[in-house]
Simulated scan of single mutants.
Amino acid sequence: MAEQALSVVGFVCAAVAVLFQPVVFGLAGVALGVAGHVRGEPLGRWAAIAAGAGMLAGTVLSILLAPG
């Protein structure tokens, strides 16, 4: 588990970005995914992609559900 730590935290940030502060958690997830990829973690690239998608989805949801 420790060998994939950055990627796992990147995926967690991707999931959190959909519901809470998408820009903050999305960018953190992308950064962690890229860092994991650079360190040779196989899931690093996918964590960065998932965080970007989570950031986009969270932003769209917040625009659609915002009152007024």
Score class of each variant (00 low, 15 high):
residue 29 G to V: 03
residue 7 S to L: 11
residue 31 A to W: 05
residue 19 L to S: 11
residue 56 L to C: 13
residue 25 F to W: 09
residue 26 G to M: 01
residue 4 Q to H: 15
residue 59 T to I: 03
residue 50 A to G: 06
residue 28 A to Q: 04
residue 60 V to P: 03
residue 8 V to H: 09
residue 51 A to Y: 02
residue 48 A to V: 02
residue 35 A to I: 04
residue 5 A to L: 12
residue 28 A to H: 02
residue 16 V to S: 00
residue 17 A to Q: 06
residue 53 A to D: 04
residue 44 G to A: 12
residue 3 E to P: 01
residue 32 L to V: 01
residue 32 L to Q: 00
residue 51 A to C: 10
residue 20 F to Q: 10
residue 16 V to K: 00
residue 48 A to R: 00
residue 65 L to W: 07
residue 62 S to W: 05
residue 39 R to T: 05
residue 37 H to F: 13
residue 14 A to V: 09
residue 38 V to G: 01
residue 17 A to D: 04
residue 54 G to R: 03
residue 56 L to V: 15
residue 57 A to L: 15
residue 60 V to M: 13
residue 47 A to L: 09
residue 48 A to G: 04
residue 18 V to W: 06
residue 68 G to I: 12
residue 33 G to I: 09
residue 47 A to H: 08
residue 3 E to W: 09
residue 42 P to Q: 10
residue 9 V to M: 10
residue 56 L to E: 05
residue 63 I to Q: 12
residue 18 V to N: 06
residue 66 A to S: 10
residue 14 A to K: 01
residue 57 A to D: 01
residue 5 A to R: 06
residue 62 S to P: 00
residue 19 L to W: 15
residue 11 F to G: 01
residue 47 A to V: 10
residue 34 V to W: 08
residue 2 A to R: 11
residue 11 F to Y: 10
residue 4 Q to I: 13
residue 52 G to N: 01
residue 57 A to M: 10
residue 47 A to Y: 06
residue 56 L to Y: 05
residue 23 V to N: 07
residue 48 A to W: 00
residue 38 V to C: 01
residue 21 Q to M: 09
residue 8 V to Q: 14
residue 34 V to Y: 05
residue 17 A to M: 06
residue 51 A to H: 04
residue 22 P to K: 04
residue 53 A to C: 12
residue 49 I to A: 13
residue 15 A to N: 07
residue 17 A to C: 07
residue 58 G to L: 10
residue 56 L to S: 12
residue 1 M to D: 12
residue 35 A to Q: 03
residue 46 W to T: 03
residue 54 G to D: 10
residue 4 Q to D: 15
residue 12 V to R: 05
